[in-house]
Amino acid sequence: MENTFSLDGKEIPFEPGQTVWDAAMAAGVYIPHLCHNPDYEPHSSCRLCTITVNGRPFAACTQPAVADQLVHNNTPELNAMRRTILQMLFVEGNHYCPSCEKSGNCKLQSSAYDLGMQDNHFPQLFPHREPDSSHPDVILDRDRCILCGLCVRVSRDVDKKSIFAIANRGIKSELIVNSPSGKLVDSKVSVDDEAMKVCPVGSLMIKRKGFEVPIGQRDYDKEPISVVSLRQFQGRKEGRHE
């Protein structure tokens, strides 16, 4: 058939220019993701959305949909690989969910629930990362940063402020702030920035808002991220934003 591909055995229609991720989500098939937010350009850095196309792994968020390709997504092998990615993200940072303001609204945590992650497997690295609470309204808790680059992209492309960047490479990578002192207080950041709305984890946050919604009543307390994410994606097409 023209302009369809096979996804786990199901025919998925697509429009030219769509990615595999876009077409799948539009057809109601959830593909896990962390660094991708459909309101912004894809980045394909976290690799949680890895699928196989004709047997080879690709990031679904940047892979163009092509007619007749054979795509696999929800397989035990791919989900095991995704769990490993999540476990590495957990041990590379300092994630104390019991005391985190984001718990229940966090995409890292809820993706791990959804993929059945029951342990961290790898040795905890307990890295030393400096928090930045210098700003009166905004806090950056680097312990929880997964370096998804969303704040970097949105601050640069949408807010036109370029406040954030990822410095260094590999395990030494860290999120830095563009200001003379390197502190948020001396940057142009504001609570109204779009960049302040995109952090998937509890790293870049607005102060005094953390517990506005009580624990137990948050997005992913009630439903798994696979359900919430699909509904938000559908709502977005219809102009609703949750």
Partner: peptide, 11 residues
């Protein structure tokens, strides 16, 4: 004995 998704919590 793996837990179903709704019983997995870290907090």
């Amino acid at each position: 004995p793996s837990l179903p998704t709704e019983l997995i919590k870290y907090d």
